[in-house]
Design a binder for these strands. Structure first.
Lengths: 134, 134
DNA sequence: ATAGGGCTTCCAGTCACTGGAAGGTCAAGG
DNA sequence: CCTTGACCTTCCAGTGACTGGAAGCCCTAT
């Protein structure tokens, strides 16, 4: 399987597959003409990587997950720990975004949004005479 | 005011202030010795930028917000529109993270997390015989 | 023979900083 | 006067995870 077909089957751009090979996430053989040759096993790894990335795992996490995936004697606890740490990061990120959202919604609500220059959003950003907001 | 004092008052690292100057977000005068000299007005802009960045606005948005901030004849509607677009992006991001969170929680819940290699998380990532999950 | 599509490598750019090296400046202490 | 240490300066490189583009080889069909 060459890189184009592999890209179609995995859903990953060819560029990304080359990049994954470059950083050592996957390895590909070569045909006589120099084209990359992917086995079914390589394709499965790429699909695995695509799924992991789409769930927000970092490349570094993916590297660990992939090695656990390939390790027949792994402990599922290791996978679970990695995933739980990732969940913690996601929860933190959501909390941060929700805090921004709350502040911004308050500001937007106060702003009449017309042709006049008076604007509580800009005043809020200027941070003059603020009290409670973080 | 030199950069160190300005950093303390604005809460931004000196490196960041230099970077903001480099990309033209703020301008600073110079003392005879070549040190940057910040006015109170520069400091206010930096505080403004710090607040805007902490609310997730991009540098490009900050540039627009700053020019609106300095434009005494602005229309508050322009600020509101910018902010609402940003809120839309935040909501989308939160939704994405929550979708990841839901999938990951389901997988973690299924995984017993012990010394055995059997692991529903890895199986889920391998995307074999999956049905409903996105 | 040529046109097209796919493949290769390599380099640069993204975003918003951040770290570090090499060196100038200034105030205080010996 | 000299040194020490904390400032400041510039410039270069690296981060994460790709993405775009240029230059050029390969393969198939017409």
């Amino acid at each position: 399987m060459n890189i184009g077909e592999c890209a179609r089957h995995s859903g990953l751009p060819a560029k990304t597959i080359r990049y994954y090979e470059e950083i050592g996430l996957v390895r590909a053989g070569r045909d006589a003409n120099g084209y990359r040759a992917f086995s079914d096993s390589d394709l499965h790894k790429l699909i695995f990587l695509g799924r992991a990335r789409s769930l927000g795992f970092s490349i570094d996490d993916c590297r660990k997950l992939l090695s656990l995936y390939e390790d027949r004697s792994r402990a599922s606890a290791d996978v679970k720990t990695l995933t739980e740490e990732h969940l913690t990061r996601i929860a933190k990120k959501i909390a941060e975004l929700e805090a921004m959202q709350a502040t911004l919604k308050t500001l937007v609500h106060k702003c009449h949004g017309d042709a006049r220059p008076d604007c509580p959003i800009l005043e809020g950003l200027a941070a003059e005479n603020r009290e409670g907001a973080s």
